[in-house]
């Protein structure tokens, strides 16, 4: 007499003692775990290594927090707040540093009345290659003061740098907020950073256009509207997506600007 057909006999496949959670672990399970646990650890560590190792290059940006920086230059109000400082190392003899505030907003302060003033400002420098931003507290305070240190002729060169049109062009690239892309987020681009970039631009951080030429060289241009004013917020849905637009490229001092109407941008 044996078991009727269809009756399952689990003991056929498993003759060992059973693992019971609250009891001593049987020898078979002990042996199995002895091999399986290190293997599992190897597997998860391997996955961790592979994921971390293949993160793409965050780019050359940095936030130079080690020392407080003090810069002296001329205050510019439009299209975005910036300080222009003399820079002998630059072929243009000057460097334009956008002013951005801590967090994802810009200073709420209106610089139009102090446009062209010589000032000394303290902040943290955010740098990507030869581009620099000055990160300052969100409100006007001790960090900015009038400066008597600049000679009058320098003030006038810094106030009205040469403007040169480089012609119209159809550019393909990505819209990003200058702050994160220049070194705060690392990586401050791509879809995972889209919300942040759009929030920063909404908060008044100047947008930039990261264009790549066909041979892979990258250029970062400061975006303005067609008249050279700040870009309106209609641009927000397009932030961080691959887009193309036709516009005029203008060099103001050392800074390349991309002047294009917000409706000129198309998602690719």
């Amino acid at each position: 007499m044996s078991l009727k057909p269809g009756v399952l006999n689990p003991s056929k496949n498993d003759k060992h003692d059973m693992f019971v959670g609250w009891d001593k672990v049987p020898v078979v399970d002990r042996r199995f775990l002895f091999g399986a646990l290190p293997l599992a650890l190897l597997g998860t560590s391997g996955a961790s290594y592979a994921i971390a190792k293949n993160v793409s290059d965050p780019g050359a940006g940095a936030r130079l927090t080690t020392a407080p920086h003090s810069v002296t230059g001329v205050l510019v109000h439009a299209p975005y707040p910036m300080i222009r400082v003399a820079d002998a190392a630059s072929v243009y003899g000057l460097r334009s540093m956008l002013i951005i505030a801590q967090g994802k907003c810009n200073t709420g302060y209106d610089f139009s009345e102090t446009q062209g003033h010589a000032v000394k400002a303290d902040g943290v420098i955010v740098q990507r290659k030869n581009r620099q931003l000055l990160e300052v507290p969100p409100f006007v305070g001790d960090w900015i003061s009038d400066s008597q240190d600049l000679p009058a002729d320098q003030i006038s060169t810094l106030s009205s740098p040469t403007e040169e049109s480089l012609g119209r062009a159809q550019l393909a690239g990505t819209i990003m907020d200058t702050k994160c892309f220049f070194g705060v987020m690392r990586p401050g681009r791509g879809k995972t950073h889209k919300a942040c970039a759009s929030l920063c631009i909404r908060g008044g951080i100047p947008p930039s256009f990261w264009a790549r030429t066909k041979d892979g060289r990258e250029t970062v241009l400061l975006m303005t509207d067609a008249e050279g004013g700040p870009v309106p917020l209609d641009i927000l849905p397009l932030v961080a997506d691959p887009v193309t637009a036709e516009g005029e490229i203008i060099r103001v001092g050392d800074l390349l600007q991309f002047r294009a109407d917000v409706n000129a941008y198309r998602r690719i």
Binding site: S45, K53, P58
Partner: peptide, 21 residues
């Protein structure tokens, strides 16, 4: 181990100046 390894490798993969935040 997973998180530690991830952070160490993630921070070391690119040279200084290109390190991830």
């Amino acid at each position: 181990v997973f998180i530690g390894l991830f952070m160490v490798i993630g921070l070391k993969t690119y040279p200084s100046g290109h390190t991830a935040e």
